[in-house]
C-alpha cells in the first residue's frame, strides 16, 4: 500500500467521500422537505440532532479503532455499564458533577479491560471483543439485578440541556471532542502512529512505533468517548434498561464505514463519520415522516452501506485491489 492517505490538512477540508455524503444529506433534506410539510421545522431538526448525540460520540471512537485495523463490537454494552454507574450515582441523589465524571471514568476503565484482552493478549479484535460482549452483557444483568434504573432525577439533564454562549451544551461537547480527536489524529505523533499501524502493524513495529502503547491508548480513548455518550443517554432518558446499547456497536460501525474510514485501517475520516451518522439519522427520521414504517429502517442502512461502498469500489477499481487485501 502507498503512504498513509490523509484527508487535507485543515479541520474542515474535505475529501471526495465527505463531499458526496454532504451532498447526500442536503439532497435527502431537500426531498423530504418537499415530500412532507412537517419536515423542515426547527423542532424536527432538533429531534434529529438530539438523536445523533450518542452515536456521534461512539462513532468518533470507532473511527479511530477501525483506522487502526481494530474494531469493538462490545462498545454498546460498555455504554450500558457506564450508564449504570451514572444511574446509580443519580439514583442515590449524588451530585450531578460526580455523575459527569463517572461516565468517562468507567468508559476508560472498560477500555483498559478490552485493551488488556485484545492488545496485550494479542487476540484478533473482532473475536476478542465478541467474547467480551458476552461478559459485559452478563455484567449488565448482574449489576442491575434484572431491575431497571427508572425515574432518575433530572439534575444531570438540567446541567446538560442548557446553553453556553448560546450554544447547546451537547453541541459544544461534541465539537470539543471532535477537535481533540482531530488534533490527536492529524497533529501529533499518536495520529501518525495509529494510521501507520492501520496500514501494516508489522511494518509499524519494525520501524520502531510503540504499537502496543498506541493500540492500548486507542481503546481507552474509545471507552472515554463512549462514557460521555452514556452520560447524555442517562441525562436524557433518565432510565437504564437491561437492553441498553444492544444495537449501538453495529450502528456505529455502519456510520463509520459510510464515512469513508477503511476497516483495513490506514484511512480515516472523522468528518465522514459525523456526516455518516447524520445521514443515517436524517434518513431514518425523514422516511418515518413520509410514512415508511420503522421496520424498514435497517434495510435502508444496509442498502446504503452496499450502495455507497459498492459505487466507490466500482468507480475507482484498480487491478491490484484484490492482492492488496490484508488479513484483518
Amino acid at each position: 500500500m502507498s503512504a498513509v492517505r490523509q484527508s487535507g490538512s485543515g479541520v474542515f477540508s474535505m475529501n471526495g467521500r465527505e463531499w458526496s455524503l454532504l451532498v447526500a444529506c442536503l439532497l435527502a433534506i431537500a426531498i423530504f422537505s418537499v415530500a412532507s410539510p412537517h419536515y423542515a421545522t426547527q423542532g424536527n431538526a432538533v429531534t434529529v440532532l438530539r438523536n445523533s448525540i450518542e452515536l456521534l460520540l461512539i462513532g468518533l471512537g470507532m473511527t479511530l479503532l477501525l483506522a487502526m485495523g481494530g474494531v469493538d463490537v462490545s462498545i454498546g454494552i460498555v455504554m450500558g455499564l457506564a450508564a449504570i454507574a451514572i444511574g446509580r450515582i443519580l439514583g442515590a441523589d449524588g451530585s450531578p458533577f460526580v455523575a459527569l465524571v463517572a461516565g468517562p471514568l468507567v468508559g476508560a476503565l472498560l477500555g483498559c479491560v478490552t485493551a488488556a484482552v485484545v492488545v496485550l493478549g494479542r487476540v484478533p479484535a473482532i473475536v476478542g471483543t465478541l467474547g467480551l460482549l458476552g461478559v459485559y452483557r452478563t455484567a449488565v444483568f448482574a449489576l442491575l439485578g434484572g431491575q431497571w434504573l427508572s425515574g432518575l432525577p433530572s439534575s444531570l439533564n438540567d446541567l446538560l440541556a442548557t446553553t453556553v454562549l448560546g450554544i447547546p451544551v451537547p453541541a459544544l461537547v461534541i465539537a470539543v471532542a471532535y477537535l481533540i480527536v482531530w488534533l490527536a489524529l492529524r497533529r501529533t505523533p499518536y495520529g501518525l502512529h495509529l494510521l501507520a499501524i492501520g496500514n501494516s502493524e508489522e511494518k509499524a513495529r519494525l520501524s520502531g512505533i510503540p504499537v502496543i502503547k498506541v493500540r492500548f491508548l486507542t481503546f481507552v480513548i474509545s471507552g472515554v468517548l463512549t462514557g460521555i455518550a452514556a452520560t447524555f443517554y442517562v441525562a436524557t432518558y433518565r432510565n437504564v434498561e437491561t437492553s441498553i446499547g444492544s444495537t449501538s456497536a453495529l450502528d456505529a460501525i455502519a456510520a463509520v464505514i459510510l464515512g469513508g474510514t477503511s476497516i483495513l485501517g490506514g484511512r480515516c475520516s472523522l468528518l465522514g463519520t459525523v456526516l455518516g451518522v447524520l445521514l443515517l439519522r436524517i434518513l431514518q427520521n425523514g422516511l418515518l415522516l413520509i410514512g415508511v414504517p420503522s421496520l424498514w429502517q435497517p434495510v435502508v442502512t444496509g442498502v446504503l452501506i452496499i450502495g455507497v461502498l459498492g459505487f466507490e469500489a466500482v468507480s475507482n477499481r484498480l487491478p491490484l485491489t484484490r492482492f492488496q487485501r490484508a488479513p484483518a
Binding site: 412537517h38 419536515y39 429531534t47 438523536n51 437492553s243 441498553i244 431514518q284 420503522s294
Partner: peptide
C-alpha cells in the same frame, strides 16, 4: 411503529412521530 427493546430507539421513533404528525 416498532422500537425493539431500548429507550433510545423508542424516543427516536416517538420524536419522529410527533414531528410527522
Amino acid at each position: 411503529q416498532f422500537a425493539g427493546g431500548t429507550a433510545e430507539r423508542a424516543a427516536q421513533i416517538s420524536g419522529d412521530l410527533m414531528a410527522a404528525n
